[in-house]
Nucleic acid binder design. Structure first.
Lengths: 146, 146
DNA sequence: TATTGTTATACTCTATAACTATA
DNA sequence: TATAGTTATAGAGTATAACAATA
């Protein structure tokens, strides 16, 4: 599916339309750049999540991304198959699995984040740098709801 | 799935994350308001599309929304079952079906667009009016790619 | 031959319910 | 009893392929 063309104002001014198509365009720009790394944007999001800060359990990670814990199982499986992450039993609670990056996972994460910056720059190219930063800040406040 | 909570900066600053969660929050706010009208946000988008300007064929409508023509068939079926739209053979080309709104469809569209404005206002509540308008303008330019 | 609408089908993404092991 | 992870399964949403009617 391609991004879009000139739909009449009534539709294209809807926030739902704009958010959906901005996402589509970003995916079109970014996915081809992730492909050489052997991962999808979704998988990189997980590497970014589990690569930063203190180790998280699968369920903690799922909550932060707003996805179901059963979905997280499959996503971690994918990354484990690629040997980019490991599951480790949590020291304090043997029910929990902490997800940590392997050396290779760390390398892919770093490369992927560089690619992400590039793809985002392509998407935001129509905007002045100041406006791009305002867009990001506005979305951030809207998502946080404050 | 709920919207999200405090994920670490590395993830929450990603544009893909922000766009997805803004969309999720908007849907959470809007869908309950559409429900009393007996339609989904998706269906209202179609009413808005086919209600504005000159009549469009299914395929023209699909192109403008960036969806597949086979998907459009099912969506128009739904609205036709609810008697909100009609399919009419195009005068000049008997292969094409122009989609037009019924009287009831027009009423639902008007009410739905009012609800949309309300839901968007709720989503954008954290922003000053000026910033909200800037956000919409920035997304518009990004989606148009210029 | 090409295009529009349609149907049948399959694939992806996601969630719900039920199981297990641990707490 | 409750929670973390897991599995099986089902439901959206979407696309691909093939067909009928029309151009």
């Amino acid at each position: 599916m391609s991004s879009d063309l000139g739909a009449p104002p009534a539709v294209t001014r809807r926030l739902g339309y704009l958010l959906k198509h901005a996402q589509l365009r970003l995916a079109e720009l970014a996915e081809p750049l992730y492909a050489p790394l052997g991962i999808t944007g979704r998988q990189l999001a997980l590497l970014t999540l589990f690569g930063a800060g203190p180790a998280l359990s699968q369920q903690e990670g799922a909550a932060r991304l707003g996805i179901d814990r059963t979905t997280m199982v499959a996503l971690v499986d994918e990354l484990e198959d690629k040997e980019l992450v490991r599951r480790e039993v949590a020291p304090g609670d043997r029910r929990k699995r902490l997800v940590t990056l392997t050396g290779e996972g760390e390398r892919v994460r770093a490369a992927g984040e560089e690619v992400t910056r590039h793809a985002e720059a392509l998407l935001l190219a129509p905007l002045a740098e100041e406006d791009a930063e305002r867009l990001r800040a506005a979305l951030h406040r809207v998502v946080r709801g404050e």
